[in-house]
């Protein structure tokens, strides 16, 4: 455990939690899936990676904790260059937690607490520590009551949460979620998003990266957006700047968020001084009301 303590100091100093430089990768050595990706995640950021299916999002995520080895390029996690020895990989996987798209692939144990305990048990922690972590992870996302349930009986939304708890029990500094709300009904996805939000509030130092093709979600939720197209990050920045860029959005086979589209429409038609662009339907309604009264 002493290694982890040493690393703690580095983490506090490093503003850049994750840095990816000129990353190239190909599965079959014929077609590049990642073509020179540059990416940076800062402490406390809620970052979203958007791109259509097959744009290379998941492939990029798998690199972040060393599940795939790049053909070219560098990955720096908490100021340490990622190396691929067994020891270094264990260390980096403690820091970077990935929640996969399909919770059924991730949940292997029959009972919820058993699955959440999987990471800590394999890290060789003591029984007391494992129990503590399981409890904390479950409470952090408010599923303490699911502890003794059978995993296969849970709803899809609950399974997602269990999968997240399983990753949280490793106490990561960087939480990566691959398509967190795909396949969920509106209420469950709303619920899950709130969970992720409160998680971000509880842990100021945690970096959260969400990969998705759901632009509506991203526009409302993220602090920073990166658009991925055919293995490259074509634009990154503030949600309004990135998702409002019609050329980038179109060429990436995405759609502009509806709120933004409507807002742009009124902005052109009526508003003289629109101020801050709205990010949700509620904010948009406020802007519209304001303009109608004028």
């Amino acid at each position: 455990m002493s290694g982890y303590k040493d690393g703690e100091d580095i983490k506090r100093d490093a503003e850049k939690m994750v840095e990816v430089q000129d990353l190239w990768f190909s599965y079959d050595k014929k077609k590049w899936v990642l073509k020179g990706v540059d990416m940076e995640l800062k402490r406390g950021d809620k970052t979203a990676l958007v791109g259509c299916n097959g744009s290379g999002k998941t492939t990029l995520l798998l690199h972040l904790n060393g599940l795939l080895i790049p053909d070219k390029g560098y990955i720096t996690i908490l100021g340490n260059l990622l190396s691929y020895t067994k020891k270094a990989l264990t260390e980096v996987r403690k820091r970077v937690g990935i929640v996969f798209q399909n919770p059924n692939d991730q949940i292997v144990a029959p009972i919820v607490f058993q699955d959440v305990a999987l990471g800590p048990v394999n890290l060789g922690l003591s029984e007391g520590e494992v129990k503590k972590r399981v409890k904390r992870a479950l409470n952090e996302i408010n599923i303490g009551d699911l502890r003794d349930r059978k995993a296969h009986e849970l709803s899809e939304g609950e399974k997602k949460k269990v999968a997240i708890a399983g990753v949280l029990a490793m106490e990561p500094d960087i939480l990566v979620l691959d398509e967190p709300i795909s396949g969920l009904d509106p209420e469950s996805s709303e619920d899950l998003l709130n969970t992720i939000d409160s998680l971000c509030e509880q842990n100021d130092n945690m970096v959260v990266l969400v990969a998705t093709h759901d632009v509506e979600l991203v526009y409302e939720w993220a602090d920073k957006v990166m658009v991925m197209r055919e293995g490259e990050i074509v634009k990154s920045g503030k949600p309004y700047d990135v998702l409002g860029d019609e050329a980038v959005i179109k060429s990436s086979r995405l759609a502009m968020p509806r709120v933004l589209r409507i807002y742009k429409g009124i902005e052109m038609a009526a508003c003289e001084n629109p101020g801050v662009p709205p990010r949700s339907v509620e904010e948009l309604l406020k802007v519209m009301k304001g303009n109608l009264w004028q």
Binding site: G97, D105, V108, D115, R147
Partner: peptide
């Protein structure tokens, strides 16, 4: 499944029921 297990540092140990 292998990837998901690897991502959580799986080293062959399955938590037993005692953790509950």
């Amino acid at each position: 499944m292998e990837r998901a297990l690897e991502a959580r540092c799986y080293a062959g140990k399955m938590p037993s029921l005692k953790f509950g």
